Simulated assay, not measured.
Amino acid sequence: MKSKKIVITGGPGTGKSSIIHKLEDKGEKCLHEISRQVTLEAQKEGIDQLFLENPLLFSEKLLEGRLNQYHEANALNSDHIFMDRGLPDVVAYMDYFNTNYPDIFDHTCTNHRYELIFILPPWKEIYKSDNERYESFEEALKISSYLYSTYRRYGYDPIEVPKLTVEERTDFILDMI
């Protein structure tokens, strides 16, 4: 059975990971964001912020990892899988940073489709920076607009998740599927 792939996306600090964890608590199958893993692996190699120092290499690693997740979702025996970010997120960030990328990025996004996209809007009251999230809230606002436009460019109509409690946001998503 081919699993229905559902993306939870949004700018930095919008509550994606909290919702993914709540979905798991409710017994849903989820695949987690991999950018922190890529960042931490680079830090072990002495590169403090791989995305800032070599954005193309960082993005290639993200694209590869998210493509692996896409195929992993197809292999899981479930009618749907929630994914913390999708392939178009990589392109959105590259566009935000005005960084050129090879055609394979666009090709990969065009040829690997998701069934539903939920997008979390910027929310200043819950935004927090940390060691891996270096963006200011103002930058997070801009990134969010790139995410909206990138997903639309690939033919998606993202469903905006209202600013509610984590439980209510999770229930909103589950009610929509």
Rank of each mutant, 00 (worst) to 15 (best):
S3D: 00
K4Q: 11
K5H: 00
K5V: 02
I6V: 15
V7M: 08
I8F: 01
G11M: 05
G11N: 07
P12L: 08
T14E: 04
K16E: 04
S17T: 15
S18V: 04
I19Y: 13
I19E: 13
H21G: 08
E24I: 13
G27Q: 10
C30V: 11
I34Q: 14
R36E: 09
R36H: 06
V38Y: 02
L40W: 01
L40I: 06
E41R: 11
E45N: 11
I47Y: 04
I47H: 06
F51A: 14
N54M: 01
P55T: 09
K61T: 02
L62R: 06
L63D: 02
E64G: 01
R66H: 13
Q69L: 14
Q69F: 05
H71Y: 15
A75W: 07
N77S: 14
S78D: 02
D79G: 01
H80E: 03
H80I: 01
I81Y: 00
F82M: 05
M83E: 04
M83T: 01
R85M: 00
R85C: 02
R85F: 00
D89P: 01
V91D: 03
V91E: 03
A92I: 01
A92Q: 03
Y93R: 04
M94C: 02
D95S: 15
F97T: 12
T99M: 06
N100R: 03
P102K: 05
D103P: 03
D103T: 02
F105Y: 07
N111M: 11
H112M: 05
Y114D: 03
E115T: 12
L116V: 12
L116N: 15
L116M: 15
L116Y: 14
I117Q: 09
I119A: 10
L120E: 11
E125T: 11
I126P: 06
I126Y: 04
Y127M: 05
S129D: 14
R133F: 03
R133V: 07
Y134Q: 15
F137N: 10
F137G: 08
E138L: 08
E138R: 09
E139I: 03
K142Y: 07
I143V: 14
T150C: 15
Y151L: 14
Y151S: 13
R153T: 11
Y154I: 04
D157Y: 07
P158V: 02
I159M: 07
P162H: 09
T165C: 06
E168C: 08
E168Q: 15
R169D: 12
R169Q: 15
R169F: 08
D171Y: 07
L174H: 04
L174R: 13
M176Y: 09
M176G: 00
